[in-house]
Design a protein around this nucleic acid. Structure first.
Lengths: 114, 114
DNA sequence: GTGATACTTAGGCATATGCTTAACCAATCA
DNA sequence: TGATTGGTTAAGCATATGCCTAAGTATCAC
């Protein structure tokens, strides 16, 4: 699913779809590639579950799936939280052991967050 | 950068790094692949900016870059917000034009572009 | 029916990706 | 000093990805 978001063309399509449903040719509009290529990207997006589509008459209308987008966000958010929790713990540790002068010049203070 | 998160092995590495810095072999540990492969993934992660590393003695220590992770989260969050805003607008519209019974099952309401 | 429209399928090609082994440095360690 | 550990480079290979053109199919408008 990150796979699906990995391609700029696909991100563009997702971007477009976030502004509302669109047909295949509408999606293709801003892209400088042939329709079959757009179809392929669309397939990747559908396979990832990020996008749904249904055909009515000769027009296929595509919509985005908010849930799956949220999942991706969640994954990142979880990881970031983990990292921040760790930084907090480190902060506490440093508060307890203030400025213990480590006699190293190579590996010293990398924790220069923020 | 989504590209970097697209590979499961790389996500595993990111996951590990969110729990704290790690050496290359520590990253390689849970992965069922050769060290050079891990190196390649590491390079992708560094190129994306998601991970930094520095070598001290003969061990290379890797850390994650929170900012870049946050950027990815932001991209998704922005898109999701866009989508939700749209749904809200649609909700208002439906509230104004309640239950107008559209008697079509084939090619109905496609011309919904603003 | 004829033709235009909106995709779709098929096939092919170039590059990118992911992996491997073999060989090579550089810092420790005995 | 010579072996070991931790990482790195190089080369090669298989598959995946992204793109194209050409040739369908299925509406829809006359």
């Amino acid at each position: 699913m990150f796979q699906a978001l990995a391609d700029p063309a696909r991100r563009m399509m997702v971007d477009r779809l976030c502004r509302g449903p669109a047909s295949v040719s509408e999606l293709a509009g801003p892209l400088t590639m042939s329709l079959p290529s757009v179809m392929q990207h669309l397939q990747v997006l559908e396979l990832s579950g990020l996008v749904h589509s249904r055909k009515i008459g000769r027009v296929r209308t595509c919509t985005i799936d908010r849930q799956v987008l949220t999942q991706a966000e969640q994954w990142i958010s979880d990881r970031r939280a983990l990292w921040e929790r760790r930084l907090d713990a480190l902060g506490e540790y440093l508060a307890d052991n203030p400025e213990e002068p480590e006699p190293i010049q190579t590996a010293a203070n990398q924790g220069s967050e923020t």
